[in-house]
Design a protein around this nucleic acid. Sequence first.
RNA 1: CGGGGCGUGGCGCAGCCUGGUAGCGCGCCUGUUUUGGGUACAGGAGGUCGUGGGUUCGAGUCCCGCCGCCCCGACCA
Length: 485
Amino acid sequence: MCTAQFSGVTYAAPAVPSNRLDHQPRSDYRANAIRTPAPTLERNSNTMRLSHGFVPTLKETPSEAQIASHRLMLRAGLVRQTSAGIYAWLPLGLRVLRNIERIVREEQDIAGAQEILMPTIQPAELWRESGRYDDYGKEMLRIRDRHDRDMLYGPTNEEMVTDLFRQAVKSYRELPQILYHIQWKFRDEVRPRFGVMRGREFLMKDGYSFDLDQAGAVLSYRKMMLAYMRTFQRMGLKAIPMEADTGPIGGDLSHEFIILAPTGESQVYFDAAFEEMDYLSGAGGSSHEKPEDLDRFFKQMTTHYAATDEKHDAARWEQVAPTRRREGRGIEVGHIFYFGTRYTKAMNTTVTGPDGKLVHPEMGSYGIGVSRLVGAVIEAGHDDAGIIWPDSIAPYKAAIINLKIGDATCDGLCETLYAALNGNAVYDDRSDRAGAKFADADLMGHPWQVIVGPRGAAAGKVELKRRATGERSEVTPEEALARIG
RNA sequence: CGGGGCGUGGCGCAGCCUGGUAGCGCGCCUGUUUUGGGUACAGGAGGUCGUGGGUUCGAGUCCCGCCGCCCCGACCA
């Protein structure tokens, strides 16, 4: 719809971009801009001009930040720390967080999980019932309300979801159920560190499955495992499920999902087979529906060797063909496990079975560290200049860099591009020098940079730069828009 | 929770040892300049020196308490 805008006379600078106009009625908004897209309800989505955006980038690294993702998140203006392990999310960071949430949510829904939203504050009563109120220790933030009731800021939600379940579900006919929510949690870590990767307050997707029997629970477990592999692949991450400690229950139904990142916290060993797997195409029979597909998928996930250094088994490692051995560093971004009737028994939760007898449903729980993923993705994708976002979760698809603010041709072209990208681009309209803008664009890591300078603009060309590869090309504005997509 | 370190303008730091009324770089504001990878010059704004107490004629500096933050380890999504 924007193609026609680029021909002939239309480059005249609209006399507009003062941010003040953003507060005027919509009908006046950018009245002079050339054929701006039709007004939408998301008026503010088109207002990311760096001259007025709340994107406090830093040239120097704050002294508290040590690892790459923490440094870059602070420097790129994604977050600010408010106290140890607790962060405020600024516009750019929040957009990334929302994008990750979106993918997680879509994949949970595809897998048949149902979204709910449980509170952050929970009554101590539920935790006394499961016995964890005393067990949990100082990591649990305990609060007392005005009536002197014991409350707590939830570190996880097994008790609460079990309580919800037992109030509402009475028959095996209503099973299975998989409930999830994406909610802030708080664990009062002794030593928060690594920025959002190990904060005290963190955003987590936690899901809980309820099945009539263990066979059903295993199926739910496998559905979630598939959902996780799809989720991480969509974020551009190479994730590998690794066997984790199952505690007293035993078996092989606990996996942590490790993504590969050179600066990861733990050493990991795995078979090259994981590098080649594709969970999105569906070609590998990766369906959530058919038990036999899930079975095949699960075998695929568990027959190849994969272990963190704590669980590394040198003997089994030796059996992997040397050319297929892979070692690296990894970050845990998800964890799923089956725990049977641990909570349904403790909390007297039953449904009526087919034979009329009461049974305790079998449960599993499934977590993804949503806020942690923001840091983990950066650990997996950055260079000396800054962040390199995967397209699927980048805060914006592109940065439009105006090299000569005040030049009518540059201004006009940038405005047109900005309008055409309709909320998917940041526009660097600051009156800084080119170098500062390039540096900030690289730092913020948008997948594309559209560089608009006086020379090219006069010839109707812009420069398109791909952040990940550094590859640049002179293209027409239309082509730039087409490539950005 | 054990061990270590640090709190001085928005960010990075010096000053503390050897007390004398706060400084540098970046950023910010104004002007000129520059114009494709963090420009140069000039002028300017901005600081309860984390906090409470003590010593002293005088404390950013010395002493004691407290708070906060970071690092290593143990622990953890």
